[in-house]
Design a protein around this nucleic acid. Structure first.
Lengths: 203, 203
DNA sequence: CAACTATGTAACTAATTAGTTAATATTTCT
DNA sequence: AGAAATATTAACTAATTAGTTACATAGTTG
């Protein structure tokens, strides 16, 4: 029992610290203290910092790619597929803000330390999108497009939106930023979805 | 002569290291070695690591906000304004990839350590966009929209596109990612611009 | 229940790293 | 030229941090 619990608790804490402070900014002593285990336990369960990072990222990325895949495959119409692709990804992001923080850091460092298993999960999402866009093009519903740019538009916008929530909340009420209309993630995801689909539709 | 040169050389090197490795990942000894000055010189010119970071970011962000502001103010038509807003920002990003790497890291950590002077530069860009969108709405050219989402769409997509260039280049030729059409920054910026404008236009 | 295996801990080590010091060199100004 | 201010350096310090060790405890199996 304690077997799974401790190892998982370490993984959860680590994910949250890696998201907040990055790989280098995460201190193993802090992690031990914050999750209430001895430091040696971390090394017992996860070999070293690099392995811990890899384990954390894989556990974080896989269910998100799974959720998007499942949602997209449950639809047949390319427009519907694209809609649920964006909606599901946005929801998964909002539900787990650690994901966008970690992904952004990884992209920022050129994916230099990105574990292969984690990167594969992102590629699953890209290839899924590519298939949807090709299907749409084959059915003369979508214009031909660059899937990588559409992918970045979805990922980049949603990531930035989610990751910037704490920053925006930390600004004083009086800050001009807060005078602007400030949507929640659902309406943001709706707007992204409409924007992208509108530009893709052959009419 | 040497006064400006050394200080500036340190700033340039530091910017590039901060972009590659983040704040915590940047080691002052490495910086000294890489830019061929003694470590004490860094502290002589830039007080401490935090101040150096602030100086580097301000010097990096200001000219980009300047360039976007100048380009937008040189146009009168809101559609044109939005076009050059996106084009200029994308070009500035592509010309200085350090910018997108650093901005993404900052957003990832919720802007916790983001120097106020640097954040203000990003806000300048957002407020400029807001003005353009309001002008367009007033002239019945644009639908009403959430400027923050449009802002994130621009920043997020361009940042991700630029920041991921090294990652994409590091993938093997045979990787399925490289089978996809792979646009350059100019056509990417064009596509982003068309996508956003298409979704905003009242027709 | 005894031997064994898995899990947990306190205290330690070795390496790294931000920042300092005190002395030297260079530029600037009169 | 020479005093004063500015810039640079090698060597050092104090703190931090990844990872280890030797030992203790809990659970499991013959």
């Amino acid at each position: 029992m304690a077997k799974i619990k401790t190892s998982q608790k370490i993984l959860d804490c680590a994910t949250s610290l890696f998201a907040s402070y990055g790989y280098d900014g995460t201190i193993m002593d802090d992690l031990a203290e914050q999750c209430g285990v001895n430091k040696a336990s971390i090394y017992y369960h996860h070999k070293d910092k690099a392995t811990l990072y890899e384990n954390a990222l894989t556990a974080l990325f896989t269910p998100i790619a799974d959720a998007v895949t499942e949602a997209v495959e449950s639809e047949r119409d390319p427009v519907k597929k694209l809609e649920v692709h964006i909606k599901t990804f946005a929801k998964a992001n909002a539900d787990n803000p650690n994901f966008s923080a970690i992904l952004m850091r990884e992209m920022a460092s050129g994916g230099a330390n990105m574990p292969a298993r984690a990167r594969e999960q992102m590629q699953r999402i890209l290839f899924l999108l590519n298939k949807t866009l090709e299907l749409g093009a084959a059915q003369k519903v979508f214009k031909s497009s660059d899937p990588l740019i559409i992918h970045f538009m979805i990922i980049g916008t949603v990531n930035l939106f989610v990751a910037s929530i704490p920053l925006r909340n930390s600004l004083p009420e009086t800050d001009r930023c807060n005078q602007l209309k400030n949507s929640d993630i659902e309406s943001a995801s709706d707007q992204i979805s409409k924007t992208i689909i509108a530009s893709l539709l052959l009419n």
